[in-house]
Amino acid sequence: MQLIRKFYYGDIPDDASGAAKAGPAKPASDWPLWEVFIRSKQGLEHKHVGSLHAADATMAIENARDVYTRRSEGISIWVVESHHIKTSAPEAAAELYEPAQDKIYRHPTFYDLPDEIKHM
């Protein structure tokens, strides 16, 4: 019989936490997944930073604010439900991407740049 329950920091089980066990039972499966895009500053594009669960778009924006901008990472947030994103099929990778590999002339590396031009 276990008489003493030993907890490590950050590992206190819910029944001993003092906090309530309220809330949805299986939210991860109930709430849809959202993809989050953050613009780090004015003039830059929104970049994909990750995904999260939320009940609707309003909550998704707020969750994104709390999860992804706590360290001043952004000034604007976009969210979109993940299922709206159409992805390319991994098994089509050969025909989609490999043909570009031997077309080195598509890279602008055959020009001599004058020294005066910076930031190219």
Binding site: I12, G23, P24, L52, N63, D66, V67, R70
Partner: peptide
Amino acid sequence: GHGPVLEQDIA
């Protein structure tokens, strides 16, 4: 560490 979901735990 005990919020109803991870995102609200952080919130």
